[in-house]
Amino acid sequence: MLPIVIADDSLLARKLLTKALPPDWQVDVSYATNGREALELYRAGKAAVLFLDLTMPDMTGYEVLDTLRHEDLNSFVIVVSADVQPLAQTRVRELGALAFIAKPVTPQALLPILKEYGLYA
């Protein structure tokens, strides 16, 4: 089982992303409602893959990425955000994110990224 974290303050967004995951992908999903919870789960070894929203209370996705970068990021981070501005996409990649997916997430958008990085066969 691959441990993954879905970090988003919106319950609806967490549910939609969960439904977009491949149904036969062997994963153990944990949820975070803000950046601090996402980091706690990461530090507990529960985030081999981290799906990260950018706009969250308490600690933003940008702050999470910056913290992970300083802690020797050892997770595949895929940013999932409604902020699709080119500047946001460039910034998250500079901070170590592998990919950027616009909300709402669809299986068609997610699957090629998972395959590209060897996360799903």
Rank of each mutant, 00 (worst) to 15 (best):
residue 90 T to V: 15
residue 58 D to E: 15
residue 74 N to T: 11
residue 40 E to T: 15
residue 107 P to H: 06
residue 24 D to F: 10
residue 51 F to R: 05
residue 9 D to V: 03
residue 75 S to Y: 06
residue 46 K to Y: 00
residue 12 L to T: 14
residue 59 M to N: 06
residue 65 L to T: 03
residue 47 A to P: 00
residue 93 R to N: 01
residue 49 V to K: 03
residue 97 A to H: 08
residue 115 K to Q: 15
residue 110 L to I: 07
residue 62 Y to H: 15
residue 43 R to S: 10
residue 117 Y to N: 10
residue 69 R to C: 02
residue 63 E to G: 02
residue 38 A to S: 04
residue 88 A to T: 13
residue 118 G to E: 03
residue 36 R to M: 12
residue 31 Y to V: 02
residue 86 P to M: 10
residue 34 N to Y: 00
residue 79 V to S: 02
residue 6 I to N: 08
residue 43 R to L: 11
residue 116 E to N: 13
residue 15 K to S: 09
residue 95 L to A: 12
residue 114 L to S: 10
residue 117 Y to G: 12
residue 111 L to S: 08
residue 31 Y to C: 07
residue 17 L to W: 09
residue 70 H to K: 15
residue 4 I to D: 11
residue 40 E to S: 12
residue 65 L to W: 07
residue 87 L to H: 14
residue 4 I to M: 11
residue 35 G to Y: 00
residue 41 L to Q: 10
residue 66 D to R: 14
residue 69 R to K: 15
residue 98 L to I: 13
residue 28 D to E: 15
residue 62 Y to L: 14
residue 87 L to C: 05
residue 22 P to N: 09
residue 65 L to M: 08
residue 107 P to W: 11
residue 5 V to H: 04
residue 34 N to I: 06
residue 113 I to S: 01
residue 50 L to H: 03
residue 91 R to A: 12
residue 95 L to M: 14
residue 76 F to W: 06
residue 39 L to Y: 02
residue 78 I to G: 02
residue 94 E to V: 09
residue 15 K to H: 12
residue 92 V to Y: 07
residue 60 T to Y: 09
residue 10 S to M: 01
residue 85 Q to S: 15
residue 17 L to C: 10
residue 96 G to C: 09
residue 11 L to I: 13
residue 79 V to E: 02
residue 59 M to H: 05
residue 82 A to V: 10
residue 74 N to F: 07
residue 76 F to C: 13
residue 110 L to V: 01
residue 119 L to C: 06
residue 34 N to S: 10
residue 80 V to A: 03
residue 99 A to C: 08
residue 99 A to T: 03
residue 102 A to D: 10
residue 104 P to H: 09
residue 88 A to H: 11
residue 111 L to E: 14
residue 79 V to T: 08
residue 69 R to N: 12
residue 91 R to W: 03
residue 2 L to N: 10
residue 119 L to T: 07
residue 78 I to R: 01
residue 12 L to G: 01
residue 96 G to V: 04
residue 85 Q to P: 00
residue 6 I to Q: 05
residue 48 A to S: 14
residue 63 E to S: 10
residue 35 G to V: 01
residue 94 E to Y: 11
residue 58 D to Y: 14
residue 16 L to K: 13
residue 14 R to M: 04
residue 56 M to Y: 02
residue 1 M to H: 14
residue 47 A to G: 00
residue 121 A to I: 05
residue 25 W to L: 15
residue 39 L to P: 04
residue 114 L to G: 07
residue 72 D to C: 09
residue 112 P to S: 10
residue 9 D to K: 05
residue 38 A to Q: 05
residue 100 F to A: 07
residue 108 Q to W: 10
residue 33 T to P: 00
residue 115 K to P: 01
residue 28 D to R: 15
residue 52 L to D: 04
residue 99 A to Y: 13
residue 18 T to A: 15
residue 96 G to K: 06
residue 117 Y to P: 07
residue 69 R to I: 00
residue 30 S to E: 11
residue 49 V to F: 02
residue 52 L to G: 05
residue 69 R to E: 11
residue 111 L to A: 08
residue 8 D to A: 01
residue 51 F to W: 07
residue 90 T to S: 14
residue 98 L to N: 11
residue 57 P to M: 08
residue 45 G to H: 09
residue 76 F to K: 12
residue 68 L to P: 07
residue 93 R to V: 09
residue 81 S to E: 09
